[in-house]
């Protein structure tokens, strides 16, 4: 499926500075203007420390920029209150973290349910959705197992099921292949392709060539020192 050209997320001169009042402020994102089209697979590529994770969390409504505008689906989110930002995050985004960030002592199903707790869905409906998400990755049989008893690949699929359980429009993944061997990385890319086929937008931050050379990727933005220095379209 090719990307449409409808702007879904757009940043305009966005900057993010950490420790702004200290002597050594860190400007992780430096006046970046970019966009994500609806339904495309976009990769932010760059070495560690280049600011791609910071840009990813800005796009994912996880933090607010120090300067600039971010428009998500027509709404300026740069100045939203924290609670509004949370609502955006809850309704539109699914996250896959570098270290999965699963709760090891909880059963698989509970981990997948976490994003649904603060909604008004009934427990029955929550469970239905969680089972559907797990079923997609052949994890339904292991729903009541503790996460710590699963293999790395299975844990990764639980993390992805969790990212999809709230039916997000955008899936954001931060270094998803960082700790994976070739086989698991292949598997992950296959899953991402599958997610993309649902019509979801996918944004990935990575420095792994296995990803940005993959055929599902529509566009690659190169980042260095908090700036975008290049764009490759496939």
């Amino acid at each position: 499926m090719t990307a449409g050209h409808e702007r879904f997320i757009a940043t305009d001169g966005v900057s993010k500075t950490y420790n702004p009042r200290r002597a050594d402020p860190v400007r992780a994102v430096d006046t970046v203007t970019m966009h994500v089209d609806r339904g495309e697979v976009l990769v932010l590529e760059g070495p560690s420390g280049s600011g791609k994770t910071s840009l990813l969390s800005l796009i994912g409504c996880m933090s607010r920029p120090t300067a600039g505008r971010i428009v998500v689906d027509g709404r300026d989110v740069a100045k939203l209150a924290e609670s509004e930002l949370t609502m955006e995050r809850r309704q539109r985004f699914g996250f896959i973290f570098q270290q999965f960030h699963l709760v090891a002592d909880l059963p698989v199903i509970e981990n997948v349910l976490v994003p649904l707790y603060p909604t008004e869905l009934s427990l029955r409906e929550m469970r239905r959705r969680a089972h559907a998400a797990l079923g997609r990755f052949a994890l339904d049989a292991k729903a009541s197992r503790k996460v710590r008893t699963l293999s790395g690949g299975e844990q990764q699929r639980v993390a992805i099921a969790r990212a999809l359980v709230n039916d997000p429009q955008v899936v954001v993944a931060d270094e998803p292949t960082a700790h994976l061997d070739r086989r698991l990385a292949e598997e992950l890319l296959a899953i991402l392709e599958d997610i993309h086929r649902d019509g979801r937008t996918v944004v990935i931050a990575t420095h792994d060539p296995r990803i940005f050379d993959h055929p599902i990727v529509d566009r690659v933005l190169e980042m260095r020192d908090g700036r975008i220095v290049g764009e490759r379209r496939r």
Partner: peptide
């Protein structure tokens, strides 16, 4: 603390 961070990232608000 990490767990609360994950909850927040996954759409839990401060109020929740």
């Amino acid at each position: 603390r990490r767990e609360i961070g994950v909850l927040k990232a996954l759409g839990w608000s401060t109020r929740d």
